[in-house]
Design a protein around this nucleic acid. Structure first.
Lengths: 230, 230, 230, 230
DNA sequence: TATGAATGAGTATTCATTCAT
DNA sequence: TATGAATGAATACTCATTCAT
């Protein structure tokens, strides 16, 4: 029973993500959630006291691995460039394995009528951006990344590329391999902004560097396990 | 009279943009438009036969200068790099001069319940993206842009950076000069991906190259005129 | 059309009074009003922006003649005792002619969840009470009323008697002549508290003193006209 | 266990009174009771089979001392006037000691949607009124009370004054000593309606006659005991 | 041309009550 | 004995749209 309760609460969140993916935030109604969960609308309120709580829980779910990812990067002693590639790959694979969740990434502006949710979503995006920027700064300090670009600009390029490729990927109905595209693009960026002395402007094929990732022990695989338990 | 009718129609679109900016697509209701225009809800239907038409007209307004921009680039015989910078600067200035309109750029996912509008918005974004990609290809053919990066990837970087910086600019309440940031970032990108042999043109001060723009004849001044006629 | 609108708005208030009378404040729902008015629930919102507004308008209607009554008493140069009897008779006849409206007088405690309405209702009751108290004081100053009773106590007796008799009248389904009972009781009170020198303790039959009322020109008859136009 | 069960049942009633006092009958919901009792909503149904039963039990609680009071008056061989004063003082002190319970006295009209409860409440009020009326008649027969006033009118004055002063006391947030006010007013009434020949007993200082009350054996002390067992 | 009045379907949320555990 | 989960009907209110005037 207690287990069932957890499942129902989780189920509501997963259903909400599915709806946001298919119908947008506008389509996320209590009626739609209830109908997809096969319960009454009133039953939803046993698990969440209002719709905003569902929205907030959905954003929490969306950003659940963020702390884990940053902790992993630190604990694995990755270089800045490894860290950035790891982050970017993790997000892309997350989306590719669970395409619906990527819809949440673009809901920010749709939350304008739900200030709490909007603020939370803005914070999540900003947090991710700041983390990449921090890695860029570390990379510049460590001599891995060229210093004639502002950390903010490079972070904008990296995050912006990933964000926009994901947007196109969604618009094209997941019609190309997201992780491959994103990783190739970001790898190229990192290569382009590697310091001059180190044989610059040679843009390696992005796939080649995959071995810099902490393969099977990475948080992504943990997440996978959790995601498939539904 | 006839003139007033046209002005009212324009007014409805401008008001819609204002609402999308302030309340999101969810907040765009006939009542809200009517109330801000100081007319009855029924009166809206004199000018648009339904809400979807308003959305489509809003997207049309949002992308009104796209053809003009591409025509200008061609007619002014700009190089690919000049064209890209011109485009990027034009959009950024457009947003900076009329911040509310930038909200439309992020409405794509909010249009999921309005398939026609969504499709149109996707087409607008894809069209802009393809145009940049085309310029990149031309630049690569002309030897202005390095060929060891796929045109798509570079277009993703350019467009993605602009898009994401604009998102951050909105989230931070227009708290930094958008055009400056975007132009600096894109200029850096173009520099980083300039061919090795020619690679000494330093564009780190983004403003410096402004003279490559077709000054007063640019689309922005036209837009300005239109924007002030309301 | 404009006339119709007024009628509908009035109709909603009169219907609300009818519902409060029959089902209590708890039974006053938008659905019930709409159903009795033969229109949709949404149509109600063309005339009142929310339920609280309906409640406030109902209280306004309930207390509409209060100012008129006090003005009449002044302009007709009534003595305090005449004024009190006039007031008491006016209210009683108002209720007797339009029994449903008397329900509003007892709604005060039912408005606890509608603080605005409650406050307004408390103010109306207090205002009526204070007016009677003022008349008592004037009567005491003019030597018409005994001074060995506090004005507040006598006002409590007068208002409380009327209020309670009306409550009993309602509970007994209007099974006795309200005005007659109230007027007899209040007349007796005034007699009992008339100064000693003036032949005290003779409780006249209440009806006998009716001629002290400004017969047909009184506000009650004006009200009657209005009430019957629906 | 069994004791706890009884306490819980009492607790539900006391909580219901508290809610009726604070939120009105409209605010009395199973959820609110359960939440204030710190138990589940379903648990309420262990003690009462539906909400109406709770209302009926609350009215029972409200009128619990009525029989006791009438029995006391008889067994103590009080005169009619003593009896009336005793009654009035008992009710006032009951309310003053336990202000929340006074809310129930005004719930009559709020029970319109609960015919059973309404009927019961009307009966309680009528019963109290009839008892006072009976005492008035006895007083008139015994020559303690003037006979030129109808017993009903005097009962209306007495009960109405108490009722209305209590209403004002509630509206003014218990801002004056209820018993004092009520007793002064009723004493004055009894004095005013004392027979002419005997009419010199001055009762203007209401407190002075307190010794006519059956001090410690009065129902209030019993009530107090019960009230403190929760 | 513009609008007041209307509506049916839908919005989030609350209600008293039931029932398996 | 107590509760978590559920529900159907109701709550106030909003939506885009229509239509007679």
């Amino acid at each position: 029973m207690h287990n069932n309760f957890l499942k129902r609460k989780d189920g509501i969140i997963l259903t909400s993500i599915e709806i946001i993916d298919q119908l947008g935030v506008q389509g996320l109604t209590i009626r739609e959630i209830a109908s997809r969960q096969g319960i009454s609308e009133a039953a939803i309120y046993r698990h969440f006291s209002n719709k905003t709580e569902i929205l907030l829980a959905t954003i929490d779910f969306f950003s659940f691995y963020d702390t884990l990812l940053s902790r992993t990067i630190k604990s694995q002693n990755m270089t800045a460039r490894e860290g950035i590639r790891f982050l970017i790959q993790s997000y892309s694979q997350y989306y590719e394995n669970y395409p619906a969740i990527s819809a949440v990434a673009f809901a920010q502006e749709a939350f304008l009528l739900e200030p709490e949710a909007r603020q939370k979503m803005v914070a999540v995006v900003d947090n991710r951006f700041q983390f990449i920027k921090k890695l860029v700064i570390e990379g510049q300090n460590a001599g891995e990344i060229n210093t004639n670009i502002s950390s903010e600009s490079l972070a904008d390029m990296i995050f912006g590329s990933m964000h926009f490729i994901t947007l196109r990927w969604r618009a094209h109905n997941y019609g190309f391999p997201l992780t491959e595209h994103v990783l190739a693009t970001v790898s190229s960026l990192l290569e382009a902004y590697s310091p001059p002395q180190k044989g610059n402007r040679v843009v390696s094929t992005a796939q080649g560097n995959d071995d810099c990732l902490p393969a099977k022990t990475g948080p992504f695989f943990e997440k996978e396990e959790i995601l498939h338990t539904r």
